[in-house]
């Protein structure tokens, strides 16, 4: 708790605030004086007004709720699926031998390129969006689960064998508790990805949510509103990550790297 306090103090130091303020004022002055050659660059006050208006009308809130709901749904599916695939890869040699390289080949496929395929199969729907999110965010969970399973101390498995634990008991009492922390590290990376990919899928696949709002604001030539969406998306990312970091620190107090990263 104290380290968190110190962190936030460190982030909000006076010189940083002053720098950000100077940058914003310079931006405002530059636009007011028409010193920039970009005709659609809005002043920070204009962005603030547009954002405030969009919040008052509830438009940006509804869009955020849609994006976050899709990201969370896709993330939950990806976490469970990734943990299952990771465990299978780590503990079933057959699965590893026959599916390892195929998965390695699919992994670097850019998620954006997957959107047109999903649109072709599912149309411009929520299913498309969630499929793409799952496809993109399942990888870090798999990779981290496999790494965690590889790092289990052999003595733990020996103990399980000595105690004559059955397969399900061994899975529930030894393997899962030992692997879960690293799966969770992967899940945290996956949540950040899920949000980004949700926005991407909304831009080119499912016409709803923040991504679509951003694109429509651009096409309607409303730069203030567009920047408002940008700020909202950034803020949402920070908020989700902070929530996740807090709840993980509470759930797994023993993992230090989580608090550091």
């Amino acid at each position: 708790m104290r380290s968190m306090l110190r962190r936030s103090m460190g982030v909000l130091n006076p010189s940083a605030l002053a720098t950000a303020l100077v940058l914003l004022v310079a931006w405002e002055a530059g636009v007011r004086a028409a010193a920039t050659r970009f005709e659609f660059l809005p002043a920070p006050t204009e962005i603030g007004q547009a954002l405030y208006g969009a919040i008052r009308s509830g438009q940006i809130i509804a869009d955020s709720v849609h994006t976050v709901a899709c990201a969370l749904a896709g993330w939950a599916i990806a976490s469970v699926l990734g943990a299952a695939i990771g465990l299978a890869l780590a503990f079933l040699p057959i699965v590893h031998r026959f599916f390892g390289a195929s998965l390695e080949l699919l992994r670097p496929l850019p998620a954006v390129a997957f959107v047109p395929v999903a649109v072709l199969l599912f149309g411009f729907t929520v299913t498309t969006e969630i499929t793409v999110i799952v496809f993109a965010s399942v990888w870090p969970v798999i990779v981290n689960t496999v790494a965690g399973a590889k790092a289990i101390h052999p003595r733990l498995l020996d103990t399980a064998a000595t105690l004559h634990l059955s397969r399900t008991q061994r899975l529930g009492k030894v393997i899962l508790p030992a692997v879960l922390p690293s799966t969770m590290v992967g899940a945290r990376v996956a949540l950040g990805l899920a949000l980004v990919v949700a926005v991407i899928a909304e831009m080119v696949g499912n016409p709803a949510g923040l991504g679509w709002g951003l694109v429509t604001a651009q096409e309607a030539l409303q730069p203030g509103l567009m920047f408002g969406y940008l700020v909202a998306t950034g803020a949402l990312g920070v908020l989700l990550n902070a929530c996740l970091r807090l709840s993980f620190a509470r759930l797994f107090p023993g993992i230090r790297e989580l608090q550091q990263s």
């Binding site: 940083a16 980004v196 831009m203």
Partner: peptide, 25 residues
């Protein structure tokens, strides 16, 4: 100390959202 938080905010913006913004501006 001065630039850190500003850069940190810019970094958290999902890169794809920059595309429509840059296209307009």
């Amino acid at each position: 100390r001065c630039l850190g938080p500003t850069l940190e905010f810019l970094r958290t913006l999902p890169p794809p959202t920059i595309v429509p913004v840059a296209a307009l501006i």
